[in-house]
Amino acid sequence: MPKDTRDAATVTTAPATAASGQTAVLYRMALPNHLCPSGQKARWLLDRHGYDVDDRLFRDRPEVDAFKQEHDVQTTPQIWIDGERVGGYDALRQKLTDYDPKTKTYRPVIYLFAVAAAAALALSIGFLGAITWQTLGWFISVSMILLGMQKLRDIESFSTMFLNYDLLARRWVPYAYIYPWVETAAGVLMTGMLLTWLAAPAALIISTIGAISVFKAVYVDKRELKCACVGGNSNVPLGFVSLTENLMMMGMAIAMIVLLFT
């Protein structure tokens, strides 16, 4: 524990009084069987932003319950800055950084495509000794696997979001549950260049339906929706990214079908 931590039971100074200037007051759990992760992150964030932390630790559950009742809060940790209660870790993060849980962002997709690109380069250099057109193919197929896994991680949330715009899923709900399995399986087979006769047509079908659905929802109906491309509960806007995902799959599938019959 940091040297400036104290047991909450031994502290009598009110948090609003102690929290002044560059001193922040932090109450967090450090029970025998539970060291609160959010409390640890709150401590780190306060240190990072130059605060002297009055770190007050709860050592047993009755202390936590009494604190919640006294301050009329539902959770810990709780932080005070400049004499005012900020709230928990998420509230502190919003106060000290630009974090906003409701802000739309492309960051998850950027990270995913970056990993797919790195994997494609590793496969190309490791197995082929050079960057070739196959590198692009691996980038697309690995992206499909990663995108599919994001959807399968919470298929219920994905299916709910997907039903907002996919034309086939809105007519036949089971398709919302089938789609991520097909995308993932097609990506695996394409990466291994196996069963092309099955993987390529499957990818072409779901990507064509997806592209038409996204184009209609965004560019025809002008709807502002969140994209289900990286799974449910994401803040990625529906539009260019999802359309690109589907167009990449379409291009890959068409190329593989052409190669299959030449």
Rank of each mutant, 00 (worst) to 15 (best):
G126S: 10
V115D: 07
I125M: 13
F113T: 10
L121Q: 03
Y111T: 11
Q150D: 04
A120S: 11
I145D: 03
V115A: 15
D154V: 04
R93L: 15
G126M: 10
K102W: 10
N164S: 13
T105P: 13
L92S: 03
D154S: 04
P108M: 10
S157G: 12
A130L: 09
Y165F: 14
I125W: 15
G126Y: 14
K95W: 05
I125R: 09
K104R: 13
A130V: 03
V142H: 00
L152Q: 05
M149E: 02
W133M: 09
D154R: 02
T135Y: 06
E84I: 13
Y99T: 09
Y89L: 11
D98N: 13
S124Q: 07
D166W: 00
E156T: 09
I125G: 03
G88S: 08
A122L: 14
G129W: 08
Q134H: 13
A91R: 11
L152M: 11
S159R: 06
W133N: 05
D166S: 08
E156C: 01
V142M: 02
G87D: 10
A120D: 03
V142E: 00
T135D: 06
T135C: 13
Q94N: 05
L96M: 13
L92K: 03
L136V: 09
Q134E: 05
L128R: 12
R85T: 05
I131A: 07
I110N: 06
Q94G: 14
F158I: 04
D100S: 07
D90L: 12
A122G: 15
S157P: 01
D82V: 12
Q94Y: 11
E156A: 06
R153G: 01
W138M: 05
Q150R: 07
S124I: 10
L112N: 02
Y89E: 06
I131M: 07
Y99A: 11
K151E: 04
Y165G: 01
L136G: 08
G126V: 13
Q134D: 07
T132C: 11
E84R: 13
L168G: 03
Y89V: 06
G129I: 14
D90I: 13
G129L: 06
W138N: 00
A114G: 12
T103K: 12
W133F: 11
L147S: 11
G87Y: 03
G88H: 05
F162N: 00
I155C: 02
D98Q: 12
K104C: 09
F113P: 00
W133V: 09
D82K: 13
Y165D: 02
P101F: 15
R85Y: 12
L167K: 03
F139N: 00
L121V: 15
V86K: 06
T103M: 13
T135A: 12
I155N: 00
A120L: 10
I140M: 03
V86C: 11
G148L: 03
L92C: 07
G137T: 01
F158H: 01
Y106T: 04
D154Q: 09
Y165N: 01
S141M: 05
I131H: 02
R107S: 07
Q134F: 05
S157Y: 01
R85H: 09
I125N: 09
G83A: 14
R93G: 06
S124R: 03
L152H: 00
P108L: 13
V142K: 00
L147T: 07
E84N: 14
M161H: 08
